[in-house]
Design a protein around this nucleic acid. Structure first.
Lengths: 345, 345
DNA sequence: TTGTAGGCGTTATCAT
DNA sequence: ATGATAACGCCTACAA
């Protein structure tokens, strides 16, 4: 049995109310001497307050749930670190919930989180406007912030990066480097980030008057293997292109592999780009040119937001859009003029 | 305010005791009809039990702390996933604690975890026999298991992989491939896994009668940059070697980069190996030959262990040693006979 | 300045 | 088969 407020009270010959006062640093209501004495005893007995009991009466807790698809996905650790670092600075703990984008798992986590009296929830998921889990959150009156994905739901705090602009700028960069035939390996359909990025790609092309050719747009699933497959297909089908933009780094790495395996020189013959700037992007060869998201920062900001919410403080903006930036490295360069004679044709 | 057991009781015209009985599925003590009625009301009112309150009386919680250095380190996500997956299957939640191997941070997390009445703790850290935080855990009578590192402390449950054997086998593999001059880039000193791996390397060499040459043993810090630096140094100092074994993949990736940059062919001129088999190892070019640890499995096993402990059940073994295995890929091959004429000499 | 007592949502013991 | 009630550790009016 651990030491409780009662033990301290008994030892100090005061009431538990007095002890409680010094524990909570109530500035008034305790004599200086008593305070000192109690402090000493607390230390001697190695007492620490029981947050669970405290939570019962204050209706608060320092537990924040973090629901995300999968911590093994290299995109998330940085973001999670950001969340955890700033949360812990304010005394909050993070409960990790890997839900694999599975609605049932998410619902189950939400429930357990509620049962545990979690103060708030970070929610990273493929969410639709009328999502049932969203209702769970709203009806449960539990503060939450949506992260990473741009979702068209009003009145719900969210923080994400501008995926349209990110991919727009990347495509634009390719175009400015002379590329006209730019293949695209997209993420899964009906996934907001994926949709947004595709949109950015298309917009950049049409803004420059380049025809969008469905033949060189492939739909992958954000995983490495699908990058391989679609790169393979792109080549096998005899398509004509000098660059390929991938909707994320994983697929770009897969695509790069295929290219190298075929003896096609990157970036001399074909330029290739990614998205996310996961750590791996900086160690491939050639190093991957990609779109960097401020992942860690996103985590920090989301945490600050949620904590304010939890504490009932005002938040200035409900929607925070972070700017992505290009990480120009080695995998994309100026189109070579004699690309017609590329080895792969 | 959320629905409580009282609301259910009132609605059903029974006492809270009865409601409690059906909530906890007590087989006896409730009439069939009453039970049905209560079940329905629970559903209708969308009631869920408050675990915090329950914990107050049962002295239990479903919260497990996971103290690790840094989730951003690519080695950990898989392991964490293993922990979380099996924990959640048994209804336990994981509180993530990134402590950066910092004793104070760890101590602070341990404290908060105790305050939150955590049921148990996974502890991944560079721990010494008389570590103060260890005492905190033991004195606090909080069940915990040590993970990942082999630590020489009795009577404390631990699960880790055999690092000596892992590196022994890798060095042996290199030797069997004709290498005699095998450089080594070690992890930091006084780090158990690092020490063990170095030990394995040395043992493999001496078992074969190969002289250990301190000149080609460098001490890094497990980070990519130090792999770069020491590879550079190895070459600059004009050392003679045909292979270099690195104590982890990160450093191997850094070393590989330097080699490629210098135009030295891997593996034709120099073989290189890593340790850990993080995802990245499978996408470098050449793909990294490395020592694979069953990371996910380690997480699962540790979780099973801790949960048993928490539930007061018997555990069969206090120390579980997992076997590493070689992941033979492309970065290490047979020593070429004319290595004397390598381009880098 | 300090103490008393009620209550937070449950479980568990003991009656009925 | 059910109900009343103490207890878990703490906070917080309200009283003294």
């Amino acid at each position: 049995m651990s030491v409780t407020i009662k033990d301290i009270a008994k030892e100090a010959n005061v009431s538990i109310a007095t002890v409680s006062r010094v524990i909570n640093n109530k500035s008034e209501g305790v004599g200086k001497e008593t305070r000192e004495k109690i402090r000493k005893i607390i230390k001697d007995l190695n007492y620490y307050p029981n947050r669970v009991a405290r939570g019962m009466v204050t209706k608060q807790s320092n537990i924040l749930g973090l629901i995300l698809p999968d911590i093994s996905n290299p995109f998330f650790p940085d973001l999670v670190r950001g969340v955890e670092d700033t949360a812990s600075k304010s005394g909050y703990n993070i409960v990790l919930c890997n839900a694999d984008n599975n609605k049932d798992k998410e619902a189950s986590y939400i429930r357990v989180l509620k049962e545990n009296n979690a103060a708030g929830i970070f929610y990273i998921s493929v969410i639709k406007k009328n999502d049932n889990n969203l209702k769970l959150l709203v009806d449960g009156k539990i503060p939450f912030v949506l992260m990473d994905r741009r979702i068209n739901i009003e009145n719900v705090p969210k923080v994400y990066t501008d995926n349209v602009t990110g991919m727009y700028e990347m495509a634009d960069y390719l175009i400015k480097n002379g590329h006209r035939r730019i293949a695209y390996i997209s993420g899964p359909k009906h996934n907001s980030s994926s949709d947004q990025r595709l949109k950015g790609y298309k917009k950049a092309l049409s803004d420059t008057g380049i025809t969008i050719d469905p033949d060189i747009i492939k739909v992958g699933d954000y995983k490495l293997e699908s990058g391989r497959q679609h790169m393979q297909a792109l080549i096998d089908e005899g398509n004509n292109f000098t660059a390929v933009a991938c909707a994320n780094d994983m697929m770009a790495v897969g695509a790069l592999e295929v290219l190298k395996h075929k003896g096609i020189k990157v970036p001399q013959e074909i330029s290739i780009t990614g998205y996310d700037d996961i750590f791996m992007a900086s160690v491939t060869s050639p190093k991957l040119t990609t779109v960097a998201q401020p992942k860690y920062k996103m985590g920090c900001i989301a945490a600050e937001l949620l904590i304010k919410l939890v504490q009932g403080r005002q938040i200035s903006r409900k929607e925070i859009i972070l700017k992505p930036s290009l990480a120009i490295r080695e995998s994309a360069i100026k189109r070579s003029d004699n690309f017609e004679n590329c080895s792969y044709r």
